[in-house]
């Protein structure tokens, strides 16, 4: 009986389809390694330019701003191709195989992992080059938690916006225009969370921001799951 129930839940939540799609995304990314390498180089050069110009950052707000500016542009750069990478034909093929909901949820999951990886990498670089003067007082575990939750939220929202922009002809700049206002609420709470963490405030100060981030992310995922099937059909 419990097995049957488990099967049913898996079916409703599209686990199997999503898992297959995430696997497909991994393979696609692996075949187009140069794109990912481009983004990694972008991250390295950004952090290195920051290091060359600033040498040492003592102000918590400046450090937080640098990390998040890098994170946002990384997300936009990495996810701009998320629908473009697979051509029209592949999408038509997918449309016959799986539900649109599985497509967007699979992409969101994969993109969340990708963005998490890239942002962790850029954070590590920031700590390596510009960590002095910041890490002494900061609660880095807390900061990293904020980065994880924020990255997932950013990835979810930007994936949805990328789908919208792709369907609208993917004209350059459209994704930024559509994405910026949508991301602002999430960014506000993420930035506030990070600043608190960098100042070394206790967790109790930050619980509310974490809740806001969680609620925004979940609502973005739900809205995307609800609305994406309408985007998808031609």
């Amino acid at each position: 009986m419990t097995g049957l129930l488990f099967c049913f839940i898996c079916r409703v939540l599209l686990f199997r389809e999503i898992a297959a799609l995430v696997r497909k995304e991994f393979m696609l990314e692996f075949r187009q390694r140069h794109a990912l390498a481009g983004i990694v180089i972008y991250v390295i050069s950004t952090v290195f330019v920051c290091y060359l110009t600033l040498q040492r950052v003592d102000k918590v707000a400046t450090w937080g701003a640098l990390v998040w500016i890098t994170a946002i542009f990384t997300v936009f750069n990495a996810l701009m191709r998320t629908f473009q990478a697979e051509g029209q034909g592949v999408q038509l093929y997918l449309y016959t195989l799986v539900s649109a909901r599985a497509v967007i949820l699979g992409k969101m999951l994969y993109n969340a992992l990708l963005v998490l990886l890239l942002n962790t990498f850029s954070l590590a670089l920031f700590l390596l080059f510009l960590g002095q003067g910041i890490t002494e007082q900061a609660d880095m575990v807390q900061f990293f938690t904020g980065l994880v939750v924020g990255s997932i939220g950013l990835a979810a929202m930007v994936t949805f916006i990328a789908g919208l922009a792709y369907k609208a002809g993917n004209s350059p700049g459209l994704m930024a225009i559509l994405g910026f206002p949508v991301l602002i609420p999430l960014l506000l709470s993420v930035v506030r969370f990070s600043l608190h963490a960098l100042e070394g405030l206790p967790w109790s100060e930050n619980r509310f921001q974490l809740l806001v981030m969680g609620v925004l992310t979940v609502s973005a995922v739900l809205l995307a799951a609800l609305l994406f099937p309408y985007l998808w059909r031609e």
Binding site: K167, A168, L174, F228
Partner: peptide, 23 residues
Amino acid sequence: VLRATVEDDEKRARLSAVYNIFA
């Protein structure tokens, strides 16, 4: 802006309806 970028009537209607609900 989104409405201005899409040429096809029905596609524009669909995309902008999706974005409108999100907004």
